[in-house]
């Protein structure tokens, strides 16, 4: 996953710079480590960062809210820096395959607006706009992941 990796499997024009998300597994991207960058957009370096994972079980991505404290990558102090947003993917075996459950938890919302720069969005506005926007993108991504995983079955 990631704009500078295999894509987000969602709306590529919006999230992947127009580049089509990969339809095949890219072997060179299968080894990941805590602290790796999964770019939200091509060239982005602030989001998303892999904060924790267990192969075949879960993957947690985060967006740093506080300035880096200098804590070592992977430590609890380092993880606490990611209080702007968390996005966690979990996999559970079910009778006929896998249940993929995804949770997004924004701590606060900041938008980049021309002229004004970074603008903090108040809580009620964020609660109003985040769910429908997230739903559209998330649904597309989940279906994109399902299509690719099921078409790759032997």
């Amino acid at each position: 996953m990631g704009a500078d990796r295999a894509g987000w499997y969602s709306y590529d024009r919006l999230e992947n710079g127009g580049r089509k998300s990969s339809d095949t597994v890219i072997e060179s991207l299968q080894t990941i480590a805590v602290g790796n960058l999964f770019s939200a957009l091509p060239g982005a370096t602030d989001a998303f960062i892999l904060t924790a994972f267990e192969p075949g079980e879960f993957m947690a991505l985060g967006v740093r809210g506080r300035d880096a404290t200098g804590a070592a990558v992977g430590t609890e102090a380092w993880r606490k820096e990611f209080d702007r947003a968390n996005w966690t993917f979990t996999l559970s075996a079910i009778a006929d395959g896998t249940r993929l459950h995804v949770r997004a938890r924004p701590g606060f919302l900041v938008l980049r607006i021309p002229v004004f720069g970074l603008v903090s969005v108040s809580g009620w506005v964020a609660r109003l706009i985040a769910p429908p926007v997230h739903f559209v993108m998330q649904r597309r991504q989940l279906n994109g992941l399902r299509r690719r995983a099921e078409s790759a079955r032997p």
Partner: peptide, 20 residues
């Protein structure tokens, strides 16, 4: 879920899931 503890009071929590 792992990571929930980082943000104790999120603006909202958005859960979605799919069977594959």
């Amino acid at each position: 879920l792992p990571g929930d503890g980082i943000i104790r009071k999120p603006l909202c929590q958005l859960d979605h899931a799919i069977d594959i």
